Computed example of a mutant assay.
Amino acid sequence: MTTSPDNSVVVVADGSGSAGHAERWAADEATRWGARLRVTRDLAVPSLIEESREARLIVFAPGGEPVTALALVTDGHCPVAVVRGRKLEQAPPVEGPVVVGVDGTPASEPALALAFAEASSRGADLLAVHTWVQFSATSTDSYARDHLTSTADIAVEESELLAERLAGWQEKYPEVTVHRVVSRNRPVRFLLEQAEHARLLIVGSRAGAWFSDLSHGSTSQALLFGTPCPLIVVRAAITDEMRTR
Rank of each mutant, 00 (worst) to 15 (best):
A71R: 07
A195C: 02
F116P: 02
T3W: 08
A117L: 15
S47Q: 13
V39A: 04
A128I: 00
G85W: 01
V9R: 00
L114S: 02
M1W: 05
L48K: 00
V10R: 00
S183C: 11
E51A: 14
S212Q: 08
V181Y: 05
A27E: 12
L148P: 03
A26T: 03
V233M: 08
S142I: 11
L201R: 05
V82C: 05
Q134G: 10
A19I: 03
G64L: 00
N7S: 14
L57H: 01
W132C: 07
R180L: 03
G34S: 04
D28Y: 06
T138D: 10
A167W: 04
W169S: 03
A107L: 07
G64K: 01
T149G: 06
T227E: 02
A19K: 00
A207E: 12
V80M: 08
S220W: 07
I49E: 11
V98D: 02
E160D: 14
V45F: 04
E95A: 15
E118R: 11
E95K: 12
G208K: 06
R235A: 12
F60W: 01
A198C: 10
L43H: 11
A152I: 13
P110A: 08
A35C: 08
A207V: 12
S8G: 07
S52K: 07
G64Q: 02
V156L: 09
R53Y: 13
D125H: 02
D14E: 11
S47P: 02
S4T: 15
Q134D: 14
G63P: 06
A117M: 11
R189G: 14
F190M: 14
G85L: 03
L224H: 02
L231D: 04
E160K: 12
I232H: 07
L231W: 03
H130P: 02
E164W: 02
G101F: 05
A119E: 04
H130D: 03
D6N: 15
